[in-house]
C-alpha cells in the first residue's frame, strides 16, 4: 500500500473542500448571473413570473432604452474614466507626499501636521459651506476638476500610508541612502516607492472605487448633461423613471413609451459594473506580489 505523504489530502476532504468553495463561488456568482438574466427578460414576464435565472422570453428593450443615448453613455464613460484615472494618480501622489514627511522623524512640524490632517477626520464644514466654497470661491461649477478635487486627499489613507511606512521601512534604509548620496526626491521615488508598492496598490484600489462610484459631485457641480459621470447618469435615469411612474402629468410628456423599469435597473448595474471588474484583477497582481514580498522579509 502506498504511504500517504503528509501534505496529501484524502479524497473525502478533497470533495468537502471543493464543495465548500463551489458553494461560496456560487453564492458570489449566481446573483450576478441573475442580474444579467433579469436585465434581458421581458418586463411583463417579470411582473407575472418574478425573477428567473433563465428568462422564458428574452427581450433586450432595457438595453435598447439605455443605449438610445449611446453617445451620452460613451461620453459619460470617458468622463468617469478620466476622473478615476487622473484622480487616483493625483490622489496617490498627494497622499504619499503628505504621508512621507509624517513618517520621517527628522521632519520638524511632524506632530502639528499629523494633528492637522487628523483634525479633519473629526470635524468638517458640512455640505453647505463645501458647496459655497466650490461654486462661489473656487468657481469650479461645470468644471471637471470639481469631480476630482473633493477626494484628492483622504486623511484616513494618509494615516494608513504613514503607518505602513513606519512599520515596514526602517530609518536605516534612509540613512544609508543619504550616505550613498541620494537626494530627498531620489529617496522617495527610488527607495520608498518600490518598497511601499503594496500600500500604494491598496490605497489606489480604494481611491479608484471612490472615484468610480461617485455620483454626488456630478449632482452638485455639473449642470450640463453631457459632462456628467456614468454613475450619475445611471442614477438620474433611474430616478427620472421613478418620477415618471409616480407623476402622471410628467408621464404624459413621455408619451406612449413603455418604460421597462425593473429590467432597466438590472441593465444599468451590468453597464455600470464594467471597468471595476477589470480593475480588480489588475490590482490583485500587486496585492499578491506585495503580500509575498512582505512575508519573506518578515
Amino acid at each position: 500500500m502506498k504511504k500517504r505523504s503528509l501534505t496529501e489530502i484524502t479524497i473525502p476532504s478533497k470533495i468537502l473542500i471543493n464543495l465548500i468553495f463551489i458553494i461560496v463561488s456560487l453564492i458570489c456568482i449566481v446573483p450576478f448571473i441573475l442580474v444579467i438574466s433579469v436585465s434581458i427578460t421581458d418586463e411583463s414576464i417579470i411582473m407575472r413570473e418574478g425573477y428567473r435565472l433563465i428568462p422564458s422570453v428574452v427581450n433586450l428593450s432595457a438595453y435598447e432604452y439605455l443605449f438610445t443615448d449611446i453617445n451620452q453613455i460613451v461620453r459619460s464613460y470617458m468622463i468617469s474614466i478620466i476622473v478615476t484615472a487622473s484622480g487616483t494618480l493625483l490622489s496617490l501622489i498627494l497622499t504619499a507626499m503628505y504621508a512621507y514627511p509624517l513618517y520621517r522623524k527628522d521632519f520638524p512640524f511632524r506632530k502639528f501636521f499629523a494633528f492637522f490632517i487628523f483634525f479633519t477626520m473629526l470635524f468638517n464644514g458640512g455640505l453647505v459651506p463645501f458647496y459655497i466654497m466650490y461654486t462661489q470661491v473656487l468657481n469650479l461649477r461645470n468644471n471637471l476638476f470639481a469631480l476630482i478635487m473633493p477626494f484628492l486627499l483622504n486623511p484616513f489613507f494618509v494615516i494608513i500610508m504613514r503607518t505602513y511606512f513606519t512599520q515596514n521601512i526602517p530609518d536605516s534604509v534612509i540613512e544609508s541612502a543619504i550616505l550613498d548620496g541620494a537626494g530627498e526626491l531620489r529617496i522617495l521615488t527610488k527607495i520608498i516607492l518600490p518598497l511601499a508598492m503594496p500600500v500604494f496598490a491598496t490605497i489606489g484600489l480604494f481611491v479608484t472605487i471612490i472615484y468610480w462610484n461617485d455620483w454626488f459631485m456630478s449632482l452638485l457641480f455639473i449642470s450640463k448633461n453631457e459632462n456628467i459621470s456614468i454613475q450619475y447618469y445611471m442614477y438620474k435615469t433611474m430616478l427620472n423613471i421613478q418620477f415618471m411612474l409616480n407623476n402622471p402629468q410628467a408621464a404624459a410628456m413621455a408619451g406612449s413609451i413603455k418604460i421597462p423599469s425593473e429590467t432597466i435597473r438590472m441593465a444599468m448595474a451590468v453597464v455600470g459594473i464594467g471597468p471595476i471588474v477589470i480593475a480588480y484583477p489588475f490590482f490583485q497582481r500587486y496585492f499578491v506580489k506585495g503580500l509575498t514580498v512582505g512575508a519573506i522579509k518578515g
Binding site: Y235, L239, N240
Partner: peptide, 9 residues
C-alpha cells in the same frame, strides 16, 4: 435640474 438631483440642489 434633473429630478434626481432637485431636492439636494
Amino acid at each position: 435640474i434633473d429630478w434626481a438631483g432637485w431636492q439636494d440642489r
